[in-house]
């Protein structure tokens, strides 16, 4: 029987597999790249520019052609063209040194922001996509989903009011609350506060903040605040950040009389010991949070570390008479108080 040269066949096989990988590889392959939305689309530019203007307004900064160009990654010329187009559409007006939104422009911006933040909330609650990707995906979705679809999504999610980074989601009538909180850098040594917002842009800074375990709901106590570095404890873990990074964290101080207590996490509970649940951190969200609460893991519940599996993760806990196994990535975010 005729046989092809096995050596040549092997090479052909390897080449074939490499080709398939180049075409289909997730995110970097030819087909996944093709399906991404074209960023230079006019509608996308308009909506992004309006969002930028709204951001400036919300944070009391002055917005210029330069800042628009910088935020949209386009040239100053293109930005100027874009601005005049927006002015012609009656969405913005320019005064001597800054650009301002007209009421129509503001409501357009808020619609886009509502879609963006709802989508982030959806990704956080209902999927297992990691937090560093939420923003990028929502950046694309905000231009693709209609306002009506977004309202349906909101109803499904139970009309959430804040996105997973702590930003308020504009209501369906486009209302927004006043801005609250102070930057982490303004907190004085020895003061305690609760994080209410983590800025998700730029991505490099956000990734670092996520890696430090910072997210809305974490309680912090300032240890040392200098112009070089900010040292503080976040849910009992010590963190050190450069001030420029800490600026992206917004906190609300806790009044002195409700002095913050430091709690252990459930994962640190020794086998056979009993404790009382204090709270479930906000990183556990959506279905997983509901599941834990269904088991009766709510503040005040007594919980005993009963049994460790072969690899010591998961651990089985006795909760209200039932034996329930929990993984460490969840017990790390359940706070307890030993009794």
């Amino acid at each position: 029987m005729m046989m092809e040269n096995p050596f040549l066949m092997l090479i052909a096989g390897i080449v074939f597999i490499i080709l398939v990988a180049i075409i289909f590889w997730p995110e970097k392959g030819i087909i996944p790249r093709r399906s991404k939305i074209n960023k230079t689309n006019v509608r996308v530019l308009i909506e992004d520019a309006l969002k930028h203007l709204y951001d400036c307004e919300y944070t009391n900064l002055t917005c210029t052609i330069h800042s628009v160009a910088g935020s949209l990654h386009i040239s100053g010329n293109d930005a100027a063209n874009l601005i005049s187009k927006l002015e012609a559409m009656g969405l913005i007006k320019s005064s001597s040194d800054s650009l301002l939104l007209t009421p129509e422009g503001r409501s357009y911006a808020l619609r886009v922001i509502r879609v963006h933040r709802l989508w982030e909330r959806y990704l956080a609650d209902e999927t297992s996509i990691s937090e560093t990707e939420w923003h990028t995906i929502a950046e694309e979705k905000e231009h693709a989903i209609s306002f009506e679809q977004a309202n349906m999504l909101a109803a499904q999610l139970g009309n959430p009011i804040i996105d997973p980074h702590g930003d308020p989601i504009p209501s369906d009538t486009l209302q927004m609350p006043a801005r609250r909180g102070i930057p982490l850098t303004s907190l004085k040594e020895g003061e305690s506060a609760t994080i209410i917002h983590i800025e998700d842009e730029p991505e490099e800074i956000y990734e670092q903040l996520v890696a430090e375990g910072l997210y809305p709901g974490v309680q912090v106590r300032m240890v040392e605040s200098t112009t070089k570095r900010i040292r503080f404890s976040a849910d009992s873990e010590e963190c050190v950040l450069a001030p420029s990074f800490a600026l992206n964290v917004t906190v609300v101080p806790i009044p002195k009389e409700e002095e913050m207590k430091e709690y252990l996490t459930l994962s640190k509970l020794k086998q056979g010991k009993e404790a009382k649940v204090v709270r479930i951190s906000t990183v556990i969200r959506g279905q997983q949070r509901r599941r834990l609460m269904d088991f009766g893991i709510v503040p005040g519940t007594k919980i005993t570390a009963e049994l460790s599996s072969l690899g010591s993760d998961p651990v089985a806990y006795k909760i209200r008479g039932a034996l329930v196994a929990l993984r460490r990535n969840h017990t790390d975010h359940i706070f307890i108080e030993e009794v």
Partner: peptide, 16 residues
Amino acid sequence: KTILKGEASVFSLELP
């Protein structure tokens, strides 16, 4: 890691 990356994931295991 690929096609199921985004699907919702919830862990619970009861030991009756």
